[in-house]
């Protein structure tokens, strides 16, 4: 029992974390929606539904916090896949930044190459071979096959 008591304090914050973030989202939404015209019931303005939904989200978030705090056993959040998070995010950002400037082929090449390192067993040579192949087939599919109106290389 004493053990549970010790963990109680540090658990409090982490238990309420997910509901807390949701509550924050609801309140931020309410803050912005407050300025929108509410109108009347028979002539609703653009702000009526946003305000209602923001209040609903905040209310549900409070309920979730209460439930999570009262739960007999704290349900642990899953492990964070940092590698996947970092490399996949980097791949998408690289694609987004490059596609307008450098064209489709280089941005696809880098996106594939970077995303492959989300797998901790990735080795440079197989990655290079795979990336070259994937970029070639991507070019074939998107530009030759589907004829997407995106330039292949920088203009």
């Amino acid at each position: 029992m004493a053990n549970t008591e010790n963990h109680a304090d540090q658990n409090m914050a982490s238990r309420a974390a997910s509901g807390g973030v949701l509550l924050l989202a609801g309140l931020v939404m309410l803050f912005f929606a407050w300025g929108y015209p509410t109108g009347t019931l028979n002539q609703m303005g653009a702000g009526f539904i946003p305000q209602a939904i923001a209040i609903l989200i905040s209310g549900l978030a409070v309920a979730i916090i209460v439930i999570d705090l009262k739960a007999p056993e704290p349900e642990r959040a899953g492990p964070v896949h940092w590698r996947g998070l970092i490399f996949i995010s980097a791949a998408v950002i690289i694609f987004a930044v490059l596609v307008d400037v450098a064209g489709l082929v280089p941005s696809m090449f880098l996106a594939v190459a970077v995303s492959m390192f989300a797998d901790h067993q990735a080795r440079p040579v197989p990655v290079l071979i795979y990336t070259l192949l994937a970029t070639f087939f991507g070019w074939l599919l998107f530009l030759v096959g589907l004829e997407l109106p995106i330039p292949a290389f920088w203009r």
Partner: peptide, 12 residues
């Protein structure tokens, strides 16, 4: 990696 590229190109 192919899914990532399909997502990027598809959305763009």
């Amino acid at each position: 990696p192919v899914i990532v590229v399909m997502i990027c190109v598809g959305v763009y």
